[in-house]
Amino acid sequence: MTTTRLFSTIFLLLYFTSLFAQDDPPFRFGIRGGGNLYSGVLSVAPEISKKLHAGYQIGLTAEYEFRDNVYLQTEVGLTTKGVVYKGSEVLEGGVRQWTQNFTLRYLEVPFLIAYKPEIEENISLYFHGGPYFAYGIGGKTRLKITHKQAEGEDVDTSQDSFGENGFKKLDIGIRFGSGLEFEKYTIGFDFEYGLTNISRKDTKLSSLLNDRGFKNKGVCLSLGYKF
């Protein structure tokens, strides 16, 4: 089943479930989407600079109120993570510059506990946190090398980010964040930190990763709607 069909099936299931729910049900379903900025935990040489990787996230959400203002939350989401590294080397008569852009696409499911104190009628703060589990489903790693007034051949190649020669597909970490909920709408800010080293010891994806541990970390800004 493709990712699009999976999301469509889950969405329809949640939607029709909500139609037959009570006026004030313990279960609530919704959608969430937004943008993110990711980086990586990796030790590299001082002359190599690290840039944030811009991405997106979109997901179908569900929550259950098991105590006043306390909820269990989960989500089936599609998210992109990654990082960009840049470096340069002075050669005779010029400079060689390189950029390696890692893009990692995941199907992610968090399990969070949320606390929602009401600050005004129909307006609540929320704070949540817990583990997440993500599985890599795609992405490319692009290497670009250019020579300025220096001898050498320019390079612009890409290869799959996951697989035997790339990153491990399973990523486990923690997510925590806060936001506002007003009526059926939410706006939130989250931070994720990977606990799993997803780099292989002898990867052929990048010399930057060899014999080094790599973990995802990033921030997310999202908007949501609950049925």
Rank of each mutant, 00 (worst) to 15 (best):
L14T: 04
K50Q: 14
Y225Q: 05
G130A: 05
F29Q: 10
L91F: 10
L37H: 02
E92L: 11
E92M: 08
P117M: 07
I137A: 08
V70C: 00
Y193W: 12
R32C: 13
D24Q: 15
E118M: 03
L13Q: 05
K140L: 13
Y135T: 10
V95L: 15
I137F: 12
D160F: 02
G94N: 13
R212V: 00
G163Q: 05
H128P: 03
R5K: 10
Q22W: 14
S49W: 03
K140M: 11
N122Y: 05
I137P: 09
N36V: 02
G94K: 06
F102Q: 06
G35I: 13
W98V: 02
D23H: 15
Y115W: 13
E92Y: 13
Y56G: 11
R175N: 12
E75R: 09
T61Q: 09
S161L: 07
E121T: 14
C220K: 10
E120I: 00
Q97W: 01
P26E: 12
R96K: 14
Q73W: 00
R142V: 09
F176N: 02
G224E: 14
I123P: 00
L208I: 07
L180M: 08
A114P: 00
Y106K: 07
L42V: 10
F29W: 13
Y132V: 08
L104Y: 07
G77V: 01
N122W: 03
D68N: 08
Y38N: 15
G130Y: 02
G177K: 03
D23Q: 14
T74F: 04
G93K: 11
L14R: 03
G188W: 10
Q97Y: 00
F20W: 10
Q100D: 00
Q100W: 00
K168Q: 07
N165L: 02
G59N: 14
N69Y: 01
E181C: 03
L60T: 14
T9I: 06
F20N: 15
K215P: 01
G34L: 06
F227V: 04
Q149T: 05
K168P: 04
K140N: 15
Y85T: 04
I137V: 14
I10K: 02
G82P: 04
E65R: 12
T146M: 04
V44A: 06
R212F: 10
T99W: 03
L180T: 01
N122A: 04
F7V: 03
T61I: 09
N197Y: 13
T80L: 07
T141N: 07
E121Q: 14
S43W: 01
Y185N: 10
G166H: 08
I113H: 01
D156P: 02
I174P: 02
K201V: 09
S8C: 04
H128N: 10
K51Q: 15
F127Y: 12
D68K: 11
N197L: 11
F111K: 04
Q149Y: 03
S158I: 02
